[in-house]
């Protein structure tokens, strides 16, 4: 997993609440047995005028010019500004895979759906929760100023706006540590292998029917 430290990125606004994982990456792309290459199909149904298929090249497809990510001013965006309950719906990790593959490294919203939120951290994608009023202000500013960028400092837990104003955010220390160091959860957990084995041995005595 790629380390996350300081990001200075162009911001793109996704101005609707309850953006679900079916919208982020439609189901036909879930048939893949790979975990890369989903970026061109991020928000597929909103981004293109025709319907995408997993085995269909995307280069010559009809773009929906009105869709926010198709506007030239947001090309190369790395920060996605969103509304409440972003990522609701299914547990598909294809959603953060698609966002990451597209080039996003951080997401800002008043709230995220839980499974999606957790999935982001496993893929070097930082979801930041800010107050609804602050997010609302950011939406106004992004729309008003082309080329609007934010600096996100994970170590200091601060988002800095172009005018120098800073917005602090919360993050679990353990998740922060893993993201800063690009650590693999499984490797970390296996340091506790002995504890897991002991727990399991006790469980076998207490509830043997679970191990039939």
């Amino acid at each position: 997993m790629e380390k996350f430290n300081v990001l200075n990125g162009l911001v793109a606004p996704m101005d609707r609440a309850n953006v679900d994982t079916d919208a982020i990456i439609p189901k036909q792309f879930l048939k893949s047995i790979k975990r890369s290459g989903f970026g061109p199909n991020l928000f597929d149904a909103w981004r293109y005028l025709d319907q995408g298929q997993p085995d269909k090249p995307n280069d010559n497809r009809l773009l929906n010019k009105d869709f926010v990510l198709n506007q030239p001013r947001y090309k190369g965006a790395q920060v996605l500004l969103a509304r409440k309950n972003f990522g609701c719906g299914s547990s598909r990790e294809h959603a953060p895979w698609a966002l990451e593959d597209y080039g996003f490294r951080a997401l800002i919203a008043p709230s995220f759906a839980e499974i999606f939120f957790s999935n982001c951290f496993k893929n070097g994608l930082l979801p930041i929760v800010l107050d609804e009023s602050k997010v609302d202000r950011l939406f106004h500013e992004v729309l008003a100023f082309p080329g609007y960028r934010l600096e996100i400092d994970l170590e200091r837990q601060i988002v800095t706006k172009p005018d120098g104003e800073t917005l602090a955010f919360e993050i679990d220390p353990f998740r922060k540590y893993c993201l800063l160091n690009g650590l693999d959860d499984i490797g970390l957990t296996l340091r506790h292998a002995e504890k897991i084995r002991n727990f399991e041995d006790k469980r076998k005595l207490d509830q043997p029917w679970l191990f039939g």
């Binding site: 299914s90 598909r92 990790e93 957790s118």
Partner: peptide, 8 residues
């Protein structure tokens, strides 16, 4: 009982 992503 809860849903998890592929990394999990």
């Amino acid at each position: 009982a809860f849903g998890i992503g592929t990394s999990e």
